[in-house]
Design a protein around this nucleic acid. Structure first.
Lengths: 242, 242
DNA sequence: TCAAAAGTGTTACTTCTACACCCATGC
DNA sequence: GCATGGGTGTAGAAGTAACACTTTTGA
């Protein structure tokens, strides 16, 4: 093999590239939801051999007139009817054999949605669309299990460094719900008093003044994430951490 | 616009995709090097209009028979003759107008090399290939400035959380060289004694027993990064941090 | 003997961890 | 009145940040 600089810079050579250098590009979305039973992702049955009996992530080919971010947003809004969803690019998977029909390079995203808003599951075009507990997922179609695991690692990290957990909870929540979310996703228990003290110091939660109703114990105060306060603090060099 | 589930799962619909949904995919490498004058990246002149007077990152189209990781490694080894280079995927850039000739989705990588090994600059096929100080770079061809900035952010973060700084230094170095690297990349000064204490506690550096030669001051001890010790510690739940 | 970087400890402050009891509500 | 989760403070440990002088070498 030649050693140095024999091929051109892509940017100078692109006009020599013919269509066999082109490839299909897709996006795959790991859509996380959360409820009392734990962290879940949204899956759909796969009908492509040899994966007919498996579930797969939601994805689609990237269209010529959209960015990959836009494609991911399109997949989400088409499937769920939801806009303004937390969405983050994870990474590219480009294994040659990852797709049985042809070469498909995929860009993975993860997103966080409030599981309470899942009326879209009833839509007739969404047949088979379902939530699965992350802990119960042992295999998926294609390399989607790998994509899920990679996204989950990313989620765990971001959960501690950015105020994104709120995107998985109802817009108003109790401190215990928040702590349980953290424990469930991260996989270890946290001390109640320390957790609450840290949150208090952050000063990004506001009490609604309301409390829980119809619970057979002392009702908890309800809070919401004060995004404006958070962004104001960001400007002053503040950084979130739990 | 239709609302729900009208398009198929990519995985079930791929056979319907014709070639106009295919696109060129490239990799672009932000190759970092470091010496006393600071952090640099490797650039090459661009000869594609309208960027004839700008420099660009090293990149190439992804071939049909290779992953994007392999393409990035190929670009690196073809240009520099170096193998076994630290390489990490950053993210995809897919803006529709990012490339003047046609749509090109690019996967960016950053890599770290020991600048002392830059004989490859002399190769005839590498005409114009050059190191530029990151601080002096105000514009690049295409969206490469954005790619550089994004990669630099990633580097800064990883530098504090993973033992990667060593990949930019000679295989044997002084503690002061290491500290200066950190200060230069991260952009703030660190306390010498605290820095050394932290490093000592990590127990991943070993003294060679040698010292600097031919310096007109007290010669510093030389160290190397003990990768085996580091990986052993990793298994026991250790995590790097500076 | 001077210049220049190497090397080394202590103290105050901040943050983190571990831990136990009373409170408000529904049944 | 009892079961259930809600809500609160303190003390010890660990880690971080700030700070100055002596040493070794070459010129």
């Amino acid at each position: 093999m030649h050693k140095f600089g024999v091929q051109g810079n892509i940017n100078t050579w692109l006009d020599q590239i013919h269509h066999e250098y082109k490839t299909a590009v897709s996006v795959d979305c790991v859509i996380f939801g959360y409820d009392h039973s734990g962290l879940k992702i949204l899956l759909i049955p796969c009908d492509m051999p040899p994966f007919e009996n498996r579930l797969s992530l939601l994805g689609d080919i990237v269209h010529p007139d959209e960015t990959t971010d836009e494609a991911a947003h399109r997949v989400l809004s088409t499937r769920t009817g939801l806009d303004d969803i937390y969405l983050e690019q994870v990474q590219v998977f480009s294994d040659l054999k990852r797709h049985p029909l042809s070469r498909v390079i995929t860009v993975s995203y993860y997103s966080l949605i409030k599981i309470e808003n899942d009326d879209f599951l009833l839509e007739k075009d969404n047949l088979g669309l379902q939530w699965k507990n992350v802990k119960d997922i042992t295999e998926l179609a294609f390399d989607h299990k790998l994509i899920m695991d990679t996204s989950l690692d990313r989620l765990k990290r971001n959960l501690r460094e950015h105020p994104i957990g709120f995107a998985l909870l109802p817009s108003v929540f109790t401190l215990n719900q928040l702590q349980t979310l953290y424990e469930s996703v991260l996989g270890f228990e946290m001390d109640k008093r320390n957790f609450r003290r840290k949150l208090g110091n952050l000063e990004i939660l506001k009490a609604t003044g309301e409390t829980q109703k119809d619970v057979s114990h002392r009702p908890a105060k309800l809070y919401y994430f004060d995004k404006e306060a958070y962004e104001e603090k960001l400007k002053n060099g503040f950084s979130f951490g739990l």
